[in-house]
Design a binder for these strands. Sequence first.
DNA 1: GGAAACCGTTCGTCGCACTAACGTTTCCGA
DNA 2: TCGGAAACGTTAGTGCGACGAACGGTTTCC
Lengths: 181, 181
Amino acid sequence: MHTEHETGPSGPTDALGTADDDGMASAATPARVRSLPSRLLAMTAMHADRLVGEGLAAEGARKWHFVVLVALTDGGPASQSTLSRRTGVYRSDMVAVLNDLAARGFVERAPDPEDRRRNVVTVTAAGRGYLHRLDEIVDRAQDELLAPLSRTERATLTGLLTRLHDHHATGAPAPDGPRST
Amino acid sequence: MHTEHETGPSGPTDALGTADDDGMASAATPARVRSLPSRLLAMTAMHADRLVGEGLAAEGARKWHFVVLVALTDGGPASQSTLSRRTGVYRSDMVAVLNDLAARGFVERAPDPEDRRRNVVTVTAAGRGYLHRLDEIVDRAQDELLAPLSRTERATLTGLLTRLHDHHATGAPAPDGPRST
DNA sequence: GGAAACCGTTCGTCGCACTAACGTTTCCGA
DNA sequence: TCGGAAACGTTAGTGCGACGAACGGTTTCC
């Protein structure tokens, strides 16, 4: 790669210094930066996060609440550290998430009689109903996010992203919480 | 979309409660969440940011320093708010970035004689040399990020991401700083 | 000659990823 | 068997990026 960039004399330096007609130099992002894969990823990820975040906020939830509820209903009751490994949420932050969910009656936290270090977290019926609502919200956000893409294009995109993610997820040690999926 | 999920009676609830052999329920992330485009985007974007961030940190830079330097060399000298529009960096945060760059002699900030509200920011020769080093670092990071993809796959990925980004960038009002590219 | 808009700047907020440490409990090997 | 290592839940705190509010100085528009 290494996109050579001109430092030569032909720079468009007339944009300032002459108080030209319209006022200020171009506000366009340089193509060099605009096409950087890392930047494209960051920007679109931000849009995506904003979409789902705004949707979930309408139900008083954050994406962590959603992810944890999914992990619980799909994987069954589990301890907090297991949930942390399943979701990628740090076990430090898992505490607050479960506090929220428990305070609203969506999960229940009980000491594990088999291993008194652990808490067993279980989804309640209300939690399942809540997740159902969040599910629809998230799905709508995905649709809105991928709106300009056809079905097959969406598939190739998720395929490529999955390959990138899997590639960089393997190899890293997982001493604590994250690097899960 | 709306991936229907089972809330039925056949849940794998045997994972806990019987102190089973291996100890704890599965730690695998549910496929439902793992394949969510928004989540894929977020995770891979994090990997990408970490890659370029670690690289740039070796030169004592952050991605903003790089982006601003690119915007300056490719777009010519500009005011801070113009830079903010070009780069997507909030004008609040632009102050600190320019402070850093100016303190290291990579840019120069001078009051604009034509409009004394503005500062004219200019790259120095040292700044161009610095950008050249950062360029190589960033390009290496892109290569590392896209390692598992072929050339054509990389092109389709950036193409799809560009379409998504452009689609969501248009229409949103730009009252303050961002939403630039 | 104001009012409105713009510019640079400071300060504060929120969410997320992450680290460090601590008390409790369980496991394991000498 | 007993003592240390490890896992668990929890608290507190850090760093960063995105963003909002407000303010003094300046320019533009009516």
